[in-house]
Computed example of a mutant assay.
Amino acid sequence: MKRRLVAIGVIVAFLGLEAPFAWAQEEPQVDCENAMAQSEMNFCANKDYEAADKELNAAYRKTMAAMKETDKELGEINANYVGAVEALKKAQRAWIDYRDGQCELAGFEARGGSMEPMLVSGCLADLTKKRTEELKGLMEGPGN
Rank of each mutant, 00 (worst) to 15 (best):
residue 1 M to D: 14
residue 2 K to R: 14
residue 2 K to Y: 13
residue 3 R to S: 14
residue 8 I to C: 11
residue 12 V to P: 04
residue 12 V to N: 14
residue 12 V to Q: 14
residue 13 A to Y: 08
residue 14 F to D: 06
residue 16 G to H: 08
residue 17 L to A: 13
residue 17 L to F: 09
residue 18 E to G: 07
residue 18 E to P: 03
residue 24 A to D: 12
residue 26 E to N: 13
residue 27 E to Y: 09
residue 29 Q to E: 15
residue 30 V to S: 05
residue 33 E to P: 02
residue 36 M to T: 10
residue 37 A to R: 15
residue 38 Q to G: 07
residue 40 E to V: 03
residue 41 M to C: 04
residue 46 N to D: 15
residue 46 N to E: 09
residue 47 K to V: 13
residue 47 K to P: 03
residue 49 Y to V: 03
residue 50 E to Y: 09
residue 53 D to P: 02
residue 54 K to G: 02
residue 55 E to P: 04
residue 55 E to H: 07
residue 55 E to Q: 10
residue 56 L to A: 07
residue 57 N to E: 07
residue 58 A to C: 12
residue 59 A to M: 01
residue 59 A to F: 03
residue 60 Y to E: 07
residue 60 Y to S: 05
residue 60 Y to D: 10
residue 61 R to G: 08
residue 62 K to G: 08
residue 71 D to V: 05
residue 71 D to N: 05
residue 74 L to S: 06
residue 76 E to P: 07
residue 76 E to Q: 13
residue 77 I to C: 15
residue 78 N to K: 12
residue 83 G to R: 08
residue 83 G to S: 08
residue 85 V to T: 12
residue 85 V to Q: 09
residue 86 E to A: 14
residue 89 K to R: 15
residue 91 A to M: 07
residue 91 A to C: 13
residue 92 Q to F: 01
residue 93 R to T: 10
residue 94 A to G: 11
residue 95 W to P: 02
residue 95 W to A: 01
residue 100 D to Q: 02
residue 101 G to R: 06
residue 108 F to D: 11
residue 108 F to G: 09
residue 110 A to L: 06
residue 111 R to Q: 15
residue 111 R to F: 11
residue 113 G to K: 03
residue 115 M to E: 12
residue 115 M to N: 13
residue 117 P to K: 01
residue 118 M to V: 02
residue 120 V to S: 07
residue 122 G to P: 03
residue 123 C to F: 00
residue 124 L to F: 00
residue 126 D to S: 08
residue 126 D to L: 05
residue 127 L to D: 04
residue 128 T to A: 02
residue 128 T to E: 00
residue 128 T to L: 00
residue 129 K to G: 02
residue 131 R to G: 00
residue 132 T to N: 00
residue 132 T to F: 02
residue 137 G to P: 03
residue 137 G to H: 00
residue 137 G to D: 00
residue 138 L to F: 05
residue 139 M to E: 14
residue 139 M to C: 09
residue 139 M to L: 07
residue 140 E to L: 07
residue 142 P to R: 13
residue 142 P to T: 15
residue 143 G to D: 12
residue 143 G to A: 15
